[in-house]
Nucleic acid binder design. Structure first.
Length: 107
DNA sequence: ACATGTTCCTTAC
DNA sequence: GTAAGGAACATGT
């Protein structure tokens, strides 16, 4: 599978999110100089760099849990929540409990 | 509901 | 092998 420049950029950015923090599609898109957060989701879905790129640390700018492993709901999402909770990032009813856990990619 | 950027899948030359 | 059109997306306003 070939990785496009865009994807490479996205993965690099997502990889810099520290443990215990999350970021949003919007922030990642902006950091990548991309006007579409949706494109980020597409890149993450196709993410071939399994845990090397922590795609579970990327949520919607709404602070909604977003998606994981190709689906927006279901068992996979529960796994995402569980993973994040293990890192100290808590969710409740599909929403991030503590907004201060959002990593400032620009900082 | 519409806009937005990127990738993927046909179809045609 | 390359080009063009349309569909699909883990979103945002």
């Amino acid at each position: 599978m070939s990785v496009t420049d865009f994807e490479r950029k996205i993965y690099r950015i997502v990889s810099q999110i520290p443990r215990g923090y999350v970021s949003t599609y919007k922030l990642v898109a902006r950091k990548a100089g991309c006007g579409s957060c949706r494109a980020v989701g597409q890149a993450l879905k196709r993410n071939p760099y399994a845990p090397r790129v922590p795609c579970h640390r990327v949520i919607a700018s709404d602070l909604d849990i977003g998606g994981f492993c190709g689906s927006l709901r279901g068992r996979q999402i529960q796994r995402k929540v569980k993973l994040l909770r293990r890192e100290g990032v808590l969710f409740e009813k599909g929403k991030l409990t503590d907004p201060s856990r959002v990593y400032d990619l620009m900082g």
